[in-house]
Simulated assay, not measured.
Amino acid sequence: MAIDFTFSMKVFSALFAIMNPIANIPVFLSLTEGLSDGKKRAVAATTFIGVTIGCVVSVTLGEAILKVFGVSIDDFRLAGGLLVLLIALDMVHGSSSAQHTPRQGELGESGYDQDVAIFPLTTPLLVGPGTIATLVVFGHAAAANGEIASLATGLIVFLALLAAALFSAPYLGRFLSVKVMAIASRLMGMILAAIAVEMMVASLTAIFKGLVH
């Protein structure tokens, strides 16, 4: 089965932009401050496993879950594209996304629960509504166009990069300045905005085509 590297790159770029491993390294370090190196690696491993499971479930079962609720993929793609666009605009403006930031009332008394690997690192910081919506749409596109291998390639490469970022966070944190992370976030925001617009245009095209017929 031939791999469409353009589609794989689109999947990788979307996931990299929306999960933004570079910008989340300081978050990881702040949440694991005071822990030993061994415990930090354990948190990184648990986070990586949680993100992997969340991604696989979203890609493989997302559309089936939508059918249970009677929601078409085109309607979901339009809503997902709008949600992803809002996240992208927050990134471009240099502010935290409301969709990927836990509310104060959801946190423990000390700010975060002890098991930070699941909450808030895995969800909502990495596997939030925008991530899930993006994966469901890509999963549908891959199944419809016979590009499962291409989707898997993009997803695996990103997960490998995410694992590297999580496990090397204590080292990378010494070199990532606030200015570098701000520039990277804005660039990823622009890429994510373009992908969001593409999702919405594809959805609107399908919806209006259906109305015409």
Rank of each mutant, 00 (worst) to 15 (best):
M1K: 10
A2L: 14
A2E: 13
D4I: 08
F5L: 14
M9C: 14
M9S: 14
V11A: 06
M19T: 15
N20A: 11
N24C: 02
V27G: 00
V27C: 07
L29K: 09
G34N: 06
L35Q: 11
R41A: 10
T46K: 15
T46I: 14
F48S: 12
F48D: 09
G50W: 13
V51W: 03
T52I: 13
I53D: 07
G54R: 03
G54A: 07
C55S: 11
C55I: 11
V57G: 02
V57Q: 03
V59F: 10
E63L: 04
A64M: 10
V68T: 05
F69H: 04
G70N: 06
V71A: 08
F76Y: 02
R77Q: 04
L85N: 03
L85I: 00
L86E: 12
I87R: 02
I87C: 09
V92L: 03
S96T: 15
S96Q: 13
A98L: 07
H100S: 14
P102Y: 06
S110N: 09
Y112R: 14
D113I: 15
D115M: 12
F119S: 10
L121V: 05
P124M: 02
P124D: 03
P124E: 03
V127S: 06
V127D: 08
P129A: 08
I132E: 09
A133K: 04
A133H: 05
L135G: 07
V137I: 15
G139H: 00
G139S: 05
A141Q: 13
A142V: 05
A144Q: 12
I148Q: 08
L161P: 02
F167T: 07
F167P: 05
P170I: 01
L172M: 15
G173P: 01
V180I: 13
M181L: 14
S185T: 15
R186I: 00
R186Q: 04
M188N: 12
V197K: 07
V201F: 09
V201P: 09
S203I: 05
K209C: 03
